[in-house]
Write a protein that binds this DNA or RNA. Structure first.
Lengths: 132, 132
DNA sequence: CTATTTACGACTAAATTAGTCGGGTATATG
DNA sequence: CATATACCCGACTAATTTAGTCGTAAATAG
């Protein structure tokens, strides 16, 4: 349990990398994937998602690449994971999720409390903490 | 992310059920699976794991079933999840796990800090909290 | 124009989880 | 002892999710 996907893992590695390069410099997917031994296409996808979410910014063409455009203190892990992996929580009890338990289920309330406390941790944890 | 397996979910429901029945009474897999709409065989497996781990106790034969034999305050969620789902942590960076990142990886330390804080939550959270 | 780099959807492969099945052991009861 | 009930357990299949690949497009520097 609690595993994060490789995509998120790769994205974290890349974000940390972007946070450590010099101001004004860009890093390409190729560079990052080579340096850390990450499948290029998969990393590319993750960075595209982060770019769409405006955490990083892309420059196309030769000498292009990505740079971080958001203060690492502003990016918390809840946001980060939700960009890459969708809604967070150990269980999704909503009607939409098609849970046919809902009525019979005797653990919904406690589960929601667990979800809340995990979310609280991730809310407080910023990229800056991970990147320091 | 942070999803728990259905097996763990079913086990939690069952544990809560066992915690709420009268002292000295037993509940069978069949009863529980029927009451909550859970696949019987799957629930059976989960309860067998919990029995092996001595959280609950089985009585075979007619009028048999399961009962809780551990104080709900003594069962924390770390233990519970590790019985059912193996080691917990958002990532396993150990050599054994065959991570071929290890050297290049720039996020190992922060990841381990995250793991620790999640583990801390689950350590403190007992079945009694969920079952109250 | 060409090489480089991001964007993106569709696809396949691998791994994990969910659920099923068959056969076994223990036990209460008549 | 026979039978019905209930747990035990490993092996299997099916479904779902995650990982990774591929092809094509669009922007841009030189």
């Amino acid at each position: 349990m609690l595993k994060i996907t490789r995509k998120a893992e790769y994205a974290l590695i890349a974000l940390r990398h972007l946070n450590n390069i010099k101001d004004g410099e860009l890093a390409t997917v190729k560079e990052i994937s080579t340096q850390y031994g990450i499948p290029q296409e998969l990393l590319a996808k993750a960075l595209q998602q982060l770019a769409r979410a405006k955490l990083i910014e892309a420059t196309k063409g030769p000498y292009g690449g990505y740079k971080l455009v958001t203060d690492p203190n502003e990016i918390n892990m809840t946001k980060f994971f939700e960009i890459l992996e969708g809604p967070m929580g150990i269980m999704d009890c909503s009607f939409d999720s098609g849970c046919n338990q809902l009525n019979a289920c005797n653990i919904r309330t406690p589960i929601n409390r667990i979800n809340d406390s995990i979310r609280t941790i991730f809310d407080k944890l910023t990229l800056a903490d991970i990147t320091y």
